[in-house]
C-alpha cells in the first residue's frame, strides 16, 4: 500500500516526529511504500540543518536523511509554514533578504498542494500530531 505521513511536531520538542520515523521504518520493513512525508505546522523544523543535538541524544535529522537516501523518500516541507518559522532554502533566503538558508539536504520546500495531491493518490494518510 501507498502511505503518506503528515508530521506536525517539531523535533526535540514533542514526540510526534520521532514516532513518525519509527512508523516510517516499520512501513518500509513491511513492504509498503511511502509516497510522501509532509511536514506541516511546527513539523517544518524537522528540515532545519542547524539542529545540533548532544551526541548522546537521538539525531532525528540524520535519521530522516538516511531514510531519504536509502529509500528515495519524498520529504516535503510546507513552504508557507516554513517561511513563518524560519526554515528557508538558500534561494528563498536570498529572495527574502535573510542572511542565510538552513534547509537540510534531502528535504524539499513546496506548497500545500503537495498535501492535497498526496491525499488524493495515497491509500492511507496518517497524521502525527505535535
Amino acid at each position: 500500500m501507498q502511505f503518506t505521513l503528515v508530521v506536525y511536531g517539531a523535533p526535540h520538542s514533542s514526540e510526534g516526529a520521532a514516532t513518525a520515523l519509527r512508523f516510517a521504518r516499520a512501513l518500509l520493513q513491511s513492504g509498503h511504500a511511502i509516497y510522501r512525508v509532509f511536514f506541516y505546522s511546527d513539523g517544518v523544523h524537522n528540515g532545519s540543518a542547524l539542529a545540533a543535538p548532544p551526541q548522546d541524544e537521538q539525531d532525528l535529522l540524520s535519521q530522516w536523511q538516511a531514510l531519504e537516501r536509502n529509500h528515495k523518500l519524498d520529504l516535503t516541507i510546507c513552504i508557507a509554514a516554513a517561511q513563518r518559522r524560519g526554515v528557508l532554502s538558500p534561494s528563498e533566503a536570498s529572495r527574502l533578504e535573510k542572511t542565510s538558508g538552513n534547509l537540510a539536504d534531502g528535504f524539499e520546500l513546496a506548497g500545500l498542494g503537495q498535501l492535497a495531491e498526496a491525499s488524493a493518490v495515497s491509500d492511507r494518510v496518517v497524521t502525527f500530531g505535535g
Binding site: Y8, H32, R124, V126, G129, G130
Partner: peptide, 11 residues
C-alpha cells in the same frame, strides 16, 4: 492501518 480506513489522529 492497512486493515482500517480512514485513520484519524487525536492530539
Amino acid at each position: 492501518c492497512t486493515q482500517h480506513n480512514p485513520i484519524v489522529s487525536w492530539f
